[in-house]
């Protein structure tokens, strides 16, 4: 056997091995989806999809499985987190990509990466000791609230968002920027009228990554949100999200019960939300 044919054989083995790994991963993903569909199907058939999704009362012991309080809580907390994190992350990214020189940008990226890797329970702890008392003083309420959860989440996604934004900004070819400056544009004009539009697709995808992280976060949110299952839109009042309610009630409903099926519907909703985010990001494929 020649050296060339040996290499070809090794390549084929590697392909088979990698194919098997990818196949296993796909099988696990499909298995999770199948399990959720099988678990939630009977409840959706019995209660009706819209009645389950649009119901506003969650009282599983009384057969009420309305998911609006949790969908609303998830959307409000995520929206608040993105609103708070977006300008700060952009400011950090602009500093990292355009203001700092020498080792500054890489040092900043390292620092942000370390912050992004901090376990969520630590952010939750910080929220409990710092954010909740502040919100309590502001609002006069208990402090455990959608707002507290949004603020904690904003801090959690900020490092990830800033690193991705910084990466997006540095991908704009320097020759474009030099051309803009040579034509007499100021730094600010170059940033706003050239770099941001050129990096729009990557910036948008970075935001979707941050939204996905915010949607799926559980522990840190659970520690500060209050866990109230009543539908209300006041950010200063307690609430719950899809993930926190799954965490709270999973231990009480054995498989096969209506409550368990309702939790599976919540998980399906989260997966559907993530799928939508992926599809939206695919529409922004073109990059400069």
């Amino acid at each position: 056997m020649t050296a060339h044919s040996r290499r070809l054989r090794t390549d084929r083995r590697q392909q088979v091995l990698l194919g098997a790994a990818a196949g296993l991963y796909a099988a696990v993903g499909l298995g999770v989806l199948l399990m959720l569909l099988v678990s939630s199907g009977p409840l959706l058939l019995r209660v009706g999809v819209w009645q389950a999704l649009l119901g506003v009362h969650w009282n599983p012991l009384a057969g009420q499985f309305g998911l609006v309080p949790f969908m609303s809580g998830t959307l409000l907390v995520t929206a608040l987190a993105i609103l708070l994190a977006l300008p700060l992350a952009m400011a950090l990214a602009v500093v990292g990509a355009r203001v700092l020189r020498g080792t500054g940008p890489s040092l900043m990226t390292r620092g942000l990466t370390v912050l992004a890797a901090v376990p969520s329970v630590i952010y939750g702890w910080w929220g409990l000791t710092t954010v909740v008392p502040v919100v309590r003083r502001w609002s006069g309420g208990p402090g455990f609230s959608l707002a507290s959860a949004g603020i904690v989440l904003a801090l959690m996604i900020l490092p990830t968002l800033a690193v991705l934004f910084q990466d997006a900004l540095t991908r704009v070819p320097p020759t474009w920027q030099e051309g803009s400056l040579a034509l007499g544009a100021t730094d600010d004009q170059t940033l706003v009228r050239l770099i941001w539009p050129a990096a729009r697709a990557n910036l948008f995808r970075a935001m979707l990554v941050a939204v996905a992280r915010a949607l799926g976060e559980t522990m840190a949110v659970q520690m500060v949100i209050g866990g109230q299952t009543i539908w209300q839109l006041n950010l200063l009042r307690p609430g719950a999200t899809l993930t926190t309610q799954i965490l709270t009630d999973l231990a009480v409903f054995p498989p096969g019960t209506a409550g368990y099926r309702a939790l599976a519907v919540m998980a399906l909703l989260l997966m559907a939300g993530m799928y939508m985010l992926v599809r939206i990001s695919e529409r922004w494929e073109r990059t400069p």
Binding site: N59, P142, F144, Q222, G226, G227, Q228, T229, I230, P238, A240, L247, T248
Partner: peptide, 8 residues
């Protein structure tokens, strides 16, 4: 109470 805060 439906208005109770829930802690784990």
């Amino acid at each position: 109470s439906r208005f109770a805060l829930m802690q784990l």
